[in-house]
Design a protein around this nucleic acid. Sequence first.
DNA 1: ACATTTTGTTTACGCGCGTAAACTACAAAA
DNA 2: TTTTGTAGTTTACGCGCGTAAACAAAATGT
Lengths: 341, 341
Amino acid sequence: MATRAEVAKLAGVSEATVSYVLSGKRKISEPVQRRVVSAMQKLNYRPNRMAQALAGGKSRVIALLFPTAAKGIANVDLEYGLGAAAAAQELGYHLVMWPTFDRSISEVIATANAGLLDGVILMEVAMQDERVSALSKAKIPVGLIGRTDNEGRDSLFADRDFAGAADAAVKYFAELGHKRIGFVTERRGKSDIVVAALVRAHDGMVAAAKKYGLKLTQFESSTDVDAGRRLLHQIIESPASVTGVIALNPGASVGILQEANIIGLSIPKDLSVLSMASPESFVSATQPRLSTISPPAYEMGDCAARRLIAHLEGSKEPDLPQKLWLGELQVRETTAAPNNL
Amino acid sequence: MATRAEVAKLAGVSEATVSYVLSGKRKISEPVQRRVVSAMQKLNYRPNRMAQALAGGKSRVIALLFPTAAKGIANVDLEYGLGAAAAAQELGYHLVMWPTFDRSISEVIATANAGLLDGVILMEVAMQDERVSALSKAKIPVGLIGRTDNEGRDSLFADRDFAGAADAAVKYFAELGHKRIGFVTERRGKSDIVVAALVRAHDGMVAAAKKYGLKLTQFESSTDVDAGRRLLHQIIESPASVTGVIALNPGASVGILQEANIIGLSIPKDLSVLSMASPESFVSATQPRLSTISPPAYEMGDCAARRLIAHLEGSKEPDLPQKLWLGELQVRETTAAPNNL
DNA sequence: ACATTTTGTTTACGCGCGTAAACTACAAAA
DNA sequence: TTTTGTAGTTTACGCGCGTAAACAAAATGT
């Protein structure tokens, strides 16, 4: 590979001039600039990223901490990652995929301190996320997919607008004529970590139910499909006798559909189901096709990466469509007016 | 962050000694070694990766080229990636996620030449893969998930044992009593790129059918679920009147199940369905549960990464369970003896 | 005419580490 | 005693680039 020195010699200028042509941080006269550029082309010159990183103090590499614990049924996480990776590429950065089995980040901090990582993107963010505080203390810039309860400080997030999504979902059910609906959320395990999404979705649902005058019952289920199947029985046997459910978790939605099919419960006639988090690509696997109001994961990953990188560059906030994403209500085959109107 | 110089000073040795303690490339006396190590701990020293990379000529970063074109229904690709990323982590490497929309790799080569990438892992490998040859020409080490028809040269692969899987699948069908079976593969588009998996699976099926004396009919379908739904009609209307199908592609399997449910065809009574590529995590979304013989994607990603990294380190082949993975036959609810025995 | 600024380019050095080569101390062999 | 290792450590330099500071030349002002 050609080096800066070779380019400089071929162009008949000093090495610094080559660098300045590349960075634009000093004005270089047009003729010189042309000579340098053509020399670079002739030699197929690419500045060595390691040398740039060492001299410049930044690696232009960010990490995406990828939760592997819950290998869910749907690939939302992958889409977050692809969106972020693609954005990074486009901005001259690179995204390293960092599988995490727990929430420890000492290795991440060590790697950042070793100069390999300029920043980190986090998923499955908790309201009070110890990872965020640890990274902040270590002065490592953080981008979030999701957000903590500290709205002001950790400003580099891309999150769902749970209040808005819950409102749209409940409003839709209200307009269909439902009076009593259920909200299916994840069972909170032994661990104390409460993913912020659960809290915000819950709060949004409660507020929306109140606003539209619906009676709301909460059901809990773990993330797997079988739990969703068991859950259906809880739902139909519940004294709340809901006519529709809004489910946060794709596994539960599918489980409900499957069990309904088995026991002869008609969806959406006997029960409406709306999923709040099933990616487009997954819906085609469901039968009947799930109605959804799901987050645009790819765009959110893109947004988080762009905001983080803009921060790393010290540039002002990029012009992005939004930081809070509602998701589009997609009415398909699992929602309808209740049959006991 | 502490530097080598600080460690050296605190330990009362030269900087080189610190490096040699770390690398082990020269013998250092035990007492000195202890002093150095304790100094490193005291200062929480981490060698700067960029400086290491610049001085040493290798970045310890590899890229995983991630095909984004076909956002499939299942997340096999993600598992390949997680396996590879986790293996990389464990070996002190990092894996950057490189989304690709087409098969061009000039950017990849440029980035490798810029010193950021030591090697590349490829997926969706074609029999004659122009990416492999381009990377080889550029002297960039390649690991494959899949493999080309050049068995000897591009030895760093982890692939399915399609012949073995096809044999196991057909044998299973034969033992169930099926006489006429179908093989569902992907429709080959306008593009000339034929993913090696399609060729090898096809050849394996033909050979196995011959071996076990079954009549084999090939059906083609694109990757989406709706195509699979349409395909079921082709299958039942086909003069071949097959009693079971083996499907390479998860979308087709699901589509068949769905359409069967709609038109009242009983699976597996009227038609057995075996999927050759549906990951575990996806099966729970199907109803009835798909019988499968699917590749252990995580392990394959792990294997590809380990072999590539071993090559980069110049060490001998790591001791890995295998390079060709059969996949376990998982009999679930979509396969049975034909009812017209 | 000279002083001053502006513009364009170069010189010079540091970033933190790997490692070849040189060196030192000391043991073994002659 | 002198010679010849040998083990352990250091010296010295290069990796390729960013960028502050120095500099030269041209433009501007007085």
